[in-house]
Design a protein around this nucleic acid. Structure first.
Lengths: 321, 321
DNA sequence: CTGAAAGCGCTTACAG
DNA sequence: CTGAAAGCGCTTACAG
């Protein structure tokens, strides 16, 4: 492998000059520039980026931490991040955690080691303190209790409450909800909003009406059968993601249930599937959040102080409520 | 930032010893090892990975080149790659190309610069020659005409032909097909299989029965309306992906069309949605291909010669044909 | 078990 | 416009 030293001697210039040519610096005579370019050409030179990184102290690469890119929400989020990163010439390194805290800690260590210039946490299992404990630019795509790092989020509690109110206005009092994972923060605030809404209309909180691990369409499908078997049926289902409501909806239709008469469906996401099926949902601008997340991280990297941003949600009425 | 030099002097040992501790080398006395660890602890030492990379000459990172991670097929593929990479302690860097050749060329340049130790092309727009022209381990998840780099693929032509035969056996002669992008190789071989099958049953090839840019569920939905308006209707639709057939199917159902009586539907992928809707499809083991792709690339990186692998497909009969 | 020293391949003040 | 030299922070024969 040819190095800039080889190029320098082949072109009869100093390594400094070669470096200048490489970095499009001005102050290189046309003549030397061409000589250097020719030498690079004939020796098949390619820069060793690791040396550049070591020398410069950064890598133009950021890390994206997420449970799995195989879930529509995260796929959207990362698509947004990717668009913005691309525009800035920054590359993405992926850290799939599968919700395991130690994987998140690992990503943090990569930041410490300067493998990446910054980290976007699309979701997290570790505590805010652990995030704070590591120096380096971090952005969280989720509500943060602590200051000290940047965050961007949707007011999930308000949004969920809004959805509940909407269902209540439409005459529902017996409402079941579906969440992905109870322990994660977004679920916690949704449960809080749920309880609050029930209290307001004087309905009891029923543990068995809070369904967990509802993630895929197949989960939604299974849910329909559980719903059907109940004696005391909820009249509305509020799902934390469109996949679940789509599965439920399709299975319900297949078994002759009337939506929304037999059971109303509302969900969160506004993915293509909800549009296609006409499912009412709450749009949470996931891709846009990804874009803005990147830009905020970029600012942190360039030394600006932590910031917080909250995006707006929007209830989209279709035909399932 | 503390360096190993700082640690060395704080612990009263040489940098060599510090490096040995860092890399879990044997041949370090317990006593020095503890002294070094203490020093690292108290100085808050974190290794600079760029120096390691420069020194070692590799980065334990591979690049994955794909049009967009936002498409189910690629999401599956990368999920498979990620699982296998994780198991080997290798990290993933993403290159989203949006089908632009120059983005692929860029990924190639990253390989040259040793940013990544190898590259997996999940799909490609550039020619085999361009791939061959760059040294370094490359794996293509697609049929390769040329030897010189590794590849893993599904026999798409055979699979498509198999699907055509299946439809024909079921009595269909008027078959329309849907593809994502005509220019890509997979589409080309599918069109070839399509023509061949038509020739065998003495049907003319009709350009207007080859639908392009069919990618999402919404595309499928729109397609149903186009189908409905035709006088001379195909009796079967063979779509290159489950999303399209799902959109078509759902819209057909919504408008009272009978499947498969009015129009049969077959697709390729075997994603969750096809299972949910009972759509007949051809399973192409996308995730498994991702896993194996990684392992093959790993072998190339460790110096083994290029290899080719072909995976099997499987037609899954459900209720739409 | 230990360390001095060379090397990985760039960038960047500094001096001219 | 140009170059000699120091520096980025590790790893790794080599010699002991």
């Amino acid at each position: 492998m040819a190095t800039i030293r080889d190029i320098a001697s082949a072109a009869g210039v100093s390594v400094t000059t070669v470096s200048r040519v490489l970095n499009d610096h001005p102050y290189v005579s046309e003549e030397k520039r061409t000589r250097v370019k020719k030498a690079m050409e004939s020796l098949g030179y390619t820069r060793n980026i690791h040396a550049v990184h070591l020398s410069k102290g950064f890598s133009n690469m950021i890390g994206v931490v997420l449970p799995s890119i195989n879930l529509p929400y995260f796929a959207d989020l990362i698509a947004g991040i990717a668009v913005a990163a691309e525009a800035s010439g920054i590359h993405l390194s992926l850290y799939q955690t599968d919700y395991q805290p130690e994987k998140e800690v690992f990503a943090l260590s990569q930041l410490q080691e300067r493998q990446v210039d910054g980290l976007i946490f699309c979701s997290k299992a570790i505590s805010d303190e652990e995030l704070l404990g590591t120096k380096g630019p971090i952005l969280l795509c989720q509500h943060a209790d602590t200051a000290g790092f940047s965050s961007i989020s949707i007011p999930h509690q308000e949004a969920f409450r809004h959805g509940m109110n909407y269902l209540i206005e439409k005459g529902h009092e017996k409402i079941a909800i579906c969440l992905a994972r109870k322990k994660v923060m977004n679920s916690q605030v949704r449960i809080a909003a749920y309880k609050e809404a029930l209290r307001d209309i004087g309905q009891p909180y029923r543990e068995d009406w809070v369904v967990e691990k509802a993630i895929t369409m197949l989960d939604g499908k299974a849910l329909f059968h559980k719903w059907k078997k109940r004696r005391d049926k909820p009249t509305a289902l509020f799902a934390a993601n469109d996949q679940v409501s789509a599965g439920f909806y399709l299975e319900a239709k297949a078994h002759g249930a009337r939506i929304p008469d037999d059971v109303a469906i509302l969900s969160i996401d506004n993915h293509e599937i909800s549009r296609l099926l006409g499912i009412s949902t709450i749009d949470i601008q996931t891709k846009e959040m990804g874009k803005q997340a990147f830009r905020m991280l970029e600012k942190s990297i360039s030394g600006q102080p932590p910031a917080r941003k909250v995006l707006q949600y929007r209830l989209i009425e279709r035909s399932t409520v």
